[in-house]
């Protein structure tokens, strides 16, 4: 970029002195104009994102709030009885199921995926890292509906044989599918976060005589903590909001998941199974929107909690 300007200045400098000066001002004006224009464009983009969020909250919230005209909040949040045909809308069981499914998924997914990230970023030699990353990308590439289909045709028969219980569908099947789904998300971003830790931190720790394990757990992981937290957030939001993979393996029965193999239903799966059968202005539709609004609130709340934890951890280290 600087080359042509330099040459042009030389050529013009040969016959008239003020010429390059004027050109430069015009060039500068253009540069400053572009600078300002794009600054405003970038600001506009981020504000658009916020506007989309506002749209989501407004449109879902507007419909959701109407449910309390027909159903009392106490019934909606604390009743385990979901029989919309008879006007009983107790959503507590979906909320509890969603929470336990997410918890179960994270228990399985976080150690595996952070371990994988550590392997990629710290332990494996460079060629192996170069081989693992594209393979993880393959896993990201598989659409959620295909995971659901595989869960239905491969995992469920396997679990059926293993447990000898019913159809094999329920929390455990859903959690296994979700674990595989969010594994690449978490490990990939954790890997990036670990890779972004400055090399001098590691070298300082090695110089003090640490083994690699000590460097990883006492220096690298705390330093990359924020990034890893962000990774877990992304994975978690995917797990909470995942619909199609869950809907195919969880059984879709509105009851509380008391065991790992109880056919049950979570917020997302219940919405997608029922939303197309209801009319726009019925209490049923409002209740489903309220469940969607709850999903929103749950994920917002979780993000705030994890942000808080991340900030605290960052202050300590």
């Amino acid at each position: 970029m600087s080359m042509p300007v330099h040459q042009a200045g030389n050529l013009e400098g040969a016959d008239s002195a003020p010429m390059p000066n004027r050109r430069r001002t015009r060039r500068f004006n253009k540069a400053f104009f572009l600078n300002k224009l794009f600054k405003n464009y970038f600001l506009f983009s981020i504000l658009t994102l916020c506007a989309v969020l506002a749209l989501v909250i407004f449109f879902i919230g507007r419909t959701a709030i109407l449910v309390f005209g027909d159903v009392s909040p106490a019934e909606f949040f604390f009743s385990l009885d979901w029989t919309p045909e008879e006007g009983r809308f107790g959503a507590a069981l979906f909320i509890l199921n969603t929470l336990s499914l997410t918890l179960l998924t994270l228990i399985m997914a976080v150690p595996i995926s952070v371990g994988l990230a550590i392997l990629m970023a710290e332990i494996a030699p460079k060629w192996m890292k170069k081989a693992i990353r594209p393979v993880l990308d393959l896993l990201v590439g598989i659409p959620s509906i295909v995971y659901g289909y595989l869960g239905l045709t491969v995992l469920l028969p396997f679990l059926r044989e293993l447990s000898g219980e019913g159809l094999g569908d329920g929390l455990l099947a859903a959690a296994i599918v979700l674990t595989i789904m969010i594994l690449p998300t978490i490990s990939r971003i954790s890997d990036d976060a670990i890779g972004a830790v400055p090399k001098k931190y590691r070298e300082a720790a090695y110089a003090l005589g640490s083994t690699r394990l000590q460097v990883i757990f006492r220096v690298v992981l705390p330093a990359a903590g924020r990034g890893i937290v962000a990774a877990v957030i992304l994975g978690m939001t995917r797990a909470i909001g995942e619909t199609m993979a869950v809907v195919m393996v969880i059984g879709n029965t509105p009851q509380l998941a008391k065991t790992l193999f109880t056919p049950s239903s979570v917020l997302t799966s219940n919405i997608v199974m029922q939303i197309s059968n209801v009319e726009f202005d019925s209490a049923w539709n409002y209740a489903l929107h309220m469940m969607a609004f709850l999903l929103l609130l749950i994920s917002f709340a979780l993000i705030l909690v994890i942000r808080y934890l991340g900030r605290k951890g960052g202050a300590e280290s």
Binding site: L49, L53, T237, I240, G241, I275, H289, L296, S299, I303
Partner: peptide, 15 residues
Amino acid sequence: VESLSSVPSIVFGLL
């Protein structure tokens, strides 16, 4: 941004 990225896909469907 973080809240928006946590919005489940089904909610975008409802939107």
